[in-house]
Nucleic acid binder design. Structure first.
Lengths: 120, 120
DNA sequence: GCCATATTCAACCGAAAGGTTGACGATATG
DNA sequence: CATATCGTCAACCTTTCGGTTGAATATGGC
């Protein structure tokens, strides 16, 4: 089980992951990191915005668990962490394939969603 | 022009879809609509917020293509539209398969060294 | 026609998102 | 030591988000 599940509900984590994915700059960053790990400055280079803005985006991606950042000297390397994306992907597939046979995972998902919803 | 900049039409749509999914109320609504089509008032019933707020949420889900709304008399029925979710899921799976690409660690190491090299 | 019901619209509000700039701490280099 | 580079922080600004309330616009039932 993923580390974030200990301190947050799945719901909170999905909030953060989907919000992180909702920005085109951040998705472009993920696409860049798909090819290779990169330093913060190199990530920022192709974008027409300040380094501080990119640094914020990277913080958001890190908090969402979508990337990890590791410091080596004064350079901070950014690495893609596909696990969080896989989790959200699984969530979405439970909708896209709800006609299919795999109702087990979906059943558990639905239970969780309904319990977490502001009910009665 | 970078390779990741190719998908421009889809990019805007992904903005809207992921932003729509980033709210727990809206995800709960999607979960409810999995079971059955519902009228707006019935969708709003379990939530502790105004009907107008739910109406806004449904508008956002509709603009994202995640649901459709059809008016019958004075009742507006909401139906899940899993296609948009499937699209976003496909986008995410391309990242989930990151490991399948099996990038060579040595190659990454080499590129890192070259980028760090003070020569030129 | 009259009234209740279903849904949206418009105006407003506080908080959060996404950007800027300038200063700053830390690290490498000469 | 001096200086350039890497990255973040703090303060600020504007726009968007998520919610409220009250009025408005159908539509259905009697």
């Amino acid at each position: 089980m993923a580390a974030w599940a200990h301190s947050h509900g799945m719901d909170d984590h999905l909030d953060i992951v989907f919000a992180a994915l909702a920005d085109p700059t951040r998705r472009a960053i993920l696409a860049m990191l798909l090819e290779d790990d990169m330093a913060v400055t190199d990530v920022a280079e192709p974008f027409e915005m300040s380094l501080a803005a990119i640094s914020k985006h990277l913080g958001i991606l890190t908090r969402a668990g979508l990337i990890s950042q590791e410091r080596h000297g004064r350079v901070k390397w950014c690495r893609l962490e596909p696990d969080a994306l896989r989790d959200a992907s699984v969530w979405m597939q439970s909708f896209g394939q709800f006609e299919a046979v795999n109702l087990d995972a979906f059943e558990k998902f639905l239970e969780r969603e309904l319990r977490d919803a502001p009910a009665d």
